[in-house]
Structures are given as structure tokens and as C-alpha cells.
Design a protein around this nucleic acid. Structure first.
Length: 170
DNA sequence: AAACTTTACAACCGCAAGTCT
DNA sequence: AAGACTTGCGGTTGTAAAGTT
């Protein structure tokens, strides 16, 4: 399988934060032509960026349906539950949260939710050790019914991580 | 007020899988 | 069938902003 070469091959391509002019060019171009082939997007838009960088900027920031701003408690609870079922499948978790991107959710998890769970006495890395066994515990604690039970096939071992009070999320 | 630390988030990198020729 | 190319994903990093000493 081939690797995605653009950034490596052409070292002249710009990296780092996007300027408002670049955003504008990318927005205008995609709204006019659609993205189609991402390799062509920067050329067409007159941007000195690789296609990968353009795609990321569009999907995580510029897309009109991206919801900006803080996550609600409900959204956080949904993420915690979905993560207990799906693990680090950020794109699949994002699919359940309209307007939220996988990158945003991943960031939220790594910076805040993980610590929140640890504080509550729950190991956020449960899936590495227990193959999904904590899913019902987490689901119970945040009061959200999860219909996607694909990871729950494994029978739960007898495992009590903490009391129900400790389990309550902040 | 300055220096240092922590937090939050945008963006990059490498890999794997899908598609095309 | 095989290799080249493209896309999407997840891990990680860089850094600005906020908080603390």
C-alpha cells in the first residue's frame, strides 16, 4: 500500500496554523467546486498547502455544519458511554454527535474526560484490560442507554471498580 | 509583574484500508 | 493480480491562553 506523499515530498509546502486568508480561499473553492480530489484542492484554491492539510482544516473547522463551542453535559455523557462501548473509535463516536468532529472528541477525551473518570474511580483505559466489561457500569452511571452493543459480546468478569456514588460523574 | 505550570485545542505524522489503473 | 495513489483514522505534538506561585 502506498503512503500519502505530499507533505514529505514537497518541503516548500506551508505547515502550521491557518490564516484567515487561507481559510477564505479554501472555503470559497470548496463551496464553488466541492472538494472531490483533495490533491487538487490546494492547487485550485491557490494554496501552498498539501491536500491532507486542506482536508483536515475543512472537516475539523471550516465545514458549515461543524458545531463550535463547549460540549454540553449530555454530549459528554454520550461520549463517555460510546467510548465505553467502542473504545478509541473517534470517528464512530463522532457519527453519533452531529456537528462534532472526531478530532474535537478525541481532544475532549484526552484533556478532560479521562481525568474526570479517574477522579470518579473509573479506569478510562478499561478496554485494554477488560475488553468492554465496564461498559454497563459507565452506561448506568451516566444514565444513557446505548443501543450499539457490538463490544458487549464478551461476558463481563466479576469486577467491581467502585461504589455507585463514586461512579457518579461530576 | 514576571516566571512558571497547566490546560485546551489545532494541526501534523504515520499507518492501514480502499480505490484506481 | 499487483502496484500506485487517495482517503480516513488515531496517536501525538506544538503552542497560545489561562491559572498559579
Amino acid at each position: 500500500m502506498g503512503r500519502y506523499p505530499c507533505c514529505k515530498v514537497n518541503n516548500d509546502l506551508k505547515k502550521g496554523p491557518w490564516t484567515s486568508e487561507e481559510d477564505e480561499k479554501l472555503m470559497e473553492n470548496i463551496q464553488e467546486h466541492g472538494h472531490g480530489n483533495w490533491q487538487l484542492v490546494p492547487k485550485r484554491a491557490g494554496l501552498n498547502r498539501c491536500g491532507k492539510s486542506c482536508r483536515l482544516r475543512w472537516t475539523n473547522y471550516l465545514r458549515p455544519d461543524v458545531k463550535r463551542g463547549a460540549f454540553s453535559i449530555e454530549e459528554e455523557e454520550t461520549i463517555i458511554n460510546l467510548h465505553s462501548v467502542l473504545g478509541n473509535k473517534w470517528s464512530r463516536i463522532a457519527a453519533h454527535l452531529p456537528g462534532r468532529t472526531d478530532n474535537e472528541i478525541k481532544n475532549l477525551w484526552n484533556t478532560r474526560l479521562k481525568k474526570k473518570l479517574l477522579k470518579s474511580g473509573i479506569d478510562p483505559n478499561w478496554d485494554k484490560d477488560f475488553h468492554g466489561a465496564t461498559a454497563p457500569i459507565l452506561a448506568e452511571s451516566s444514565r444513557i442507554v446505548i443501543h450499539d452493543r457490538e463490544r458487549w459480546d464478551t461476558p463481563a468478569p466479576s469486577m467491581v471498580q467502585c461504589t455507585s456514588d463514586e461512579r457518579k460523574l461530576q
